[in-house]
Amino acid sequence: MTGLLIKDLRLFKHQGRYYLVVIALCCVLQFFSTRDFSSFMTSYLSFMIVMYTFSSFSYDEYDNGMSFLMTLPCGRRAYVTEKYIFTVLLVTAGWIVGVVLRAAGYMSRFSMEGYRKILVEDPIYLLLVLIYAGCSIPALIWFGAEKGRTAMLLGVGILAFLVYAVMKSGIRIPLADAEPGLLLMVLLILCILVLGISYRASVCLMEKKEF
């Protein structure tokens, strides 16, 4: 499995310049804008990185590469495990970079006190992005990177419609007014549950898939 992880990290390294440019643009927005873009820094960076981990499936599938990868000794389950580890590692790393830049940018322009108030937002972004990854990876594994992306967009569309419908209906959303700490705890449990179920589903799908 380490070999597969090295493969994905090396592929990511080759894309390094692109991500440095994005981080630089985020910094420009953060430091020179009159408005507070700090939440954009963490949320956008985490989201962008998770989208890259999804595109690692495309790199594997390019030129029928999956067939060859499946002949390596690590096997199908290890491939799935590696994808989850890679996603969690890379998203967390991207999120940490975002948090550090956000903290530096915000505190250099606004107050330390103000930053403390918004500090709780950052882990929420990380957990939401990981939940999104957990929902998406089984689709990417079963349908492949291209069709999986369509399935993901469809899923996001249905979710957006449901959220819109609930808001329009006036139904009171549980936890809408909850303490940030409680919200964070609920999201953490949800994230662990989603990733656990998603992993088991992905292993099952992978073991049935033909290449």
């Binding site: 597969l4 090295i6 090396r10 592929l11 390019y62 030129d63 590469g65």
Partner: peptide
């Protein structure tokens, strides 16, 4: 395999590490 191999975005050093 005739139509499959390591990702063409890698180089020989990457392949050696993998």
């Amino acid at each position: 395999l005739s139509d499959s191999g390591f990702s063409s975005y890698l180089d020989v050093q990457d392949v050696a590490s993998v």
